[in-house]
């Protein structure tokens, strides 16, 4: 495998050859890791992102069409993943800010970063326990910044149902935060 070129590895990858996949990982994980390390604050995030990049490569192995080198492709994939990571973070933290506006629980010395992390963990945990429909509605509202009308269209629900679901979801989250902060 070591002497194969990238295009040859991709041919093998297309037929589900996991040794070829492993070789691609061996070749590029480090350079991507080092790049990601500059772009993200913690090594946990770096690990997750590297995993995701190779996971998407594996998932798209049958349809992959390269217009550039494999490394360029992986770099682009890294950029999309990292920007998406920041997008999710930003949208979520904005959302939590709005949840917490009327609450006065947070002590001012807690840094923004720590605040975000704690909130994120708690909220994700609460979301996991929501009924499926409620979860779907809430995630669309929070991560995609969609309003009730847009969600209602997307999921073929009435506006009122969507509003009720979001409101109940928020109540659950607030309760959860009340208990733990």
């Amino acid at each position: 495998m070591k002497h194969l070129t990238d295009p040859e590895l991709l041919i093998l990858l297309r037929e589900d050859d996991e040794w070829a996949f492993r070789e691609i990982y061996e070749r590029y994980w480090k350079i991507l890791y080092q790049q990601a390390l500059k772009k993200l604050a913690t090594t946990e995030e770096v690990r997750d992102i590297i995993q995701e990049i190779f996971f998407s490569l594996w998932k798209s192995r049958h349809s992959i069409l390269l217009r550039e080198t494999l490394l360029q492709y992986l770099y682009t994939s890294l950029r999309y993943k990292i920007i998406d990571y920041y997008r999710l973070r930003t949208v979520r933290s904005k959302y939590y800010d709005s949840i917490l506006q009327e609450e006065e629980h947070l002590s001012p010395e807690v840094s923004e970063e720590l605040q975000y992390r704690q909130l994120n963990t708690l909220v994700e945990e609460e979301i996991r326990q929501m009924p499926a429909k409620m979860k779907e509605v809430f995630v669309l509202s929070r991560d995609y910044n969609l309003n009730a009308v847009q969600i209602a269209q997307k999921l073929s629900l009435s506006h009122q149902t969507v509003r009720n679901q979001i409101s109940t979801a928020l109540k659950r989250i607030r309760k959860r935060l009340d208990r733990s902060l």
Binding site: R87, T90, V91, K94, D143, N145, L146, Q150
Partner: peptide, 9 residues
């Protein structure tokens, strides 16, 4: 931040 939020929808 504004761009990222905008990108979501």
């Amino acid at each position: 931040r504004t761009l990222l939020i905008k990108q979501s929808s």
